[in-house]
Nucleic acid binder design. Sequence first.
DNA 1: TCCAAAAATGAGATCGATCTCATTGGTGAT
DNA 2: ATCACCAATGAGATCGATCTCATTTTTGGA
Lengths: 346, 346
Amino acid sequence: MADLASVAKRAGVSRATAARAFSSPELVRDQTREKVMAAARELRFRPNTVARQLRAQATRMIGVMVPSLDNPVFAEQLQAMEVAARERGYSLLVTTSEYDPARESDIVESMLRQRVDGLVLTVADAEQSPLLASLRRESTPCLLVYNPAGTSGFPSVGVDNRAASEAATRHLIDLGHTRIGMVAGPLLQSDRARQRFEGYCQAMQSARLTPCALVEMPRHTRAELAPLEGQLKSQQPLTALIATNDLLAISLIGELTRAGFKVPGDVSIMGFDGIALGKCLYPSLCTIEQPRAEIGREAVNALLALLEGEQHAPPLLAYTLRDGESVAPPVSSSAPCPTQRGSHHA
Amino acid sequence: MADLASVAKRAGVSRATAARAFSSPELVRDQTREKVMAAARELRFRPNTVARQLRAQATRMIGVMVPSLDNPVFAEQLQAMEVAARERGYSLLVTTSEYDPARESDIVESMLRQRVDGLVLTVADAEQSPLLASLRRESTPCLLVYNPAGTSGFPSVGVDNRAASEAATRHLIDLGHTRIGMVAGPLLQSDRARQRFEGYCQAMQSARLTPCALVEMPRHTRAELAPLEGQLKSQQPLTALIATNDLLAISLIGELTRAGFKVPGDVSIMGFDGIALGKCLYPSLCTIEQPRAEIGREAVNALLALLEGEQHAPPLLAYTLRDGESVAPPVSSSAPCPTQRGSHHA
DNA sequence: TCCAAAAATGAGATCGATCTCATTGGTGAT
DNA sequence: ATCACCAATGAGATCGATCTCATTTTTGGA
């Protein structure tokens, strides 16, 4: 591959001039620039970004670590980040951690060696993460996504999980539900899952209702459904479930429907995240929508602001309660509602 | 950030020795290596990959361009690619094109400037792409994903779209469907969409059935549904639809259900891609499953093989017809078939 | 003990672009 | 005609690691 030196030689100018023809054309006489460009074309010259990065001590690359791209909530965020980064002349080095702490550390180490200008991370639990603790000693700007800001010391982009979960729960309560459960997928121990559960408890207690214990379904499997089915068939059945994420909510709707329950007739299901697909389904998913695209864009913007030395702490972004067909008022015997719809069971 | 030179000085050795302590420890006396490592630790030295890349004329980075991460089929492929690449010491530079030719060119140009060791691309139409035409003149190895190999001159990883689509159609025919339509989302002009439509036509004709014109729904909107509804309510209603991708199939199920049709009672819906979520839905999505993870892994393997000079042309991968609840035999008045199974066509 | 061979280390060049700091050339003012 | 100034250009150093090719040290055998 031709380099600037050969272009310069061919154009009959010095390397410095050739370089200027590309990076600061206004410093070069038109005629000279033409010569350089012509030579570059003939030699099929293509600037070597690596050399520029080394010299400039900046890569214009952002290191991104998400837990998994199999969950659309991260894929959609990344999509928006990529667009935003490209607009501003940055590229993304993308990695997935599967929430594996060892892998998280390896990844971040290799990104730091690659001299990314900044990091955008999503970890399981920002408060507990030894990785973040050690990152605090580094000079590379770092920004969290989806993790609550908390005490980790890093700015974070996301929504107020606790408030959002409270709002979700209240929505169900307002519809008349009183026996509401929360179902968690894997990552019970994540900071978000915790906050979402707290929000749920808070809302229940404010309404003088009793929060139920968290139902755990780490693997979304049918077997794990059994205890839940039990609770749905009991004397005092749950009439609404909040899943800690949309993927789980969608599986729940599928499995429960298959098991003979009607959603939302027998049980309302509420999700959390707001993945795009939720809107297309029937029943459409009622969920707390995190603005994934905005989160991605804002993550890029806030990180680049940090890079430029501004202490632009990104604000909490607004979540939306997206209504959907998976949630409806309860049709329980205990609810003395006149115009009750779908009076299926006793 | 401390560099090797300062580590070397501190350890009282030359830069060459310090470098060796890291990259070829066996060439350095244990005692010397210890000194170097100690100095590195004290100075918090972290090797600069950019410098190594420049010197080595290799970046161990793969440039990946997918149309969009909002479609899980690409996100899932990318997830697998990332894992496979990391295992082999490579990183991914990830970009999204939205199938915009101008953006595709910009992206590839910037990746070439970044001196990625290889490219993994998915384009709208490999045969027509001017980008690919010009890429053929470059020395950077390039591999297509999802695009059929065809005449583009690049090896490609994916399934036989035509055969897969034919199989999907035959599956419906075997179930007794005779009036089967195909619905396409955006990207009618993509090479895959074309092949899938051909496969459909082929299967229909083989069964002496009349292929219908492709129904276009570029935006998945409700308005676009009208013509389709017409065809479903006609005298000779379509009893099965094949969508050109899963996202579209899922929206179709949702919208049609909402419009009062029963899936699969009134109309069977078949997808194409096999995104993970399809299995969780109710009705679960009957679809042609492309092995997304395998495609991702194989793309990395084949590209790295190319890098090492092997002419390891990746084979077509096997698709699977994944059965699902969205498809059932037709319940049409015109079908006088008691136990008929697949004995339809001459 | 001494030499040859092997092991360990060092000096200097290299990858490609760009920055700093001269130096040259040209213009207008006096 | 001469000087001052600005625009244009060039020479050389720099970013950090690593490669090549000496040179030094160590080791083992005679």
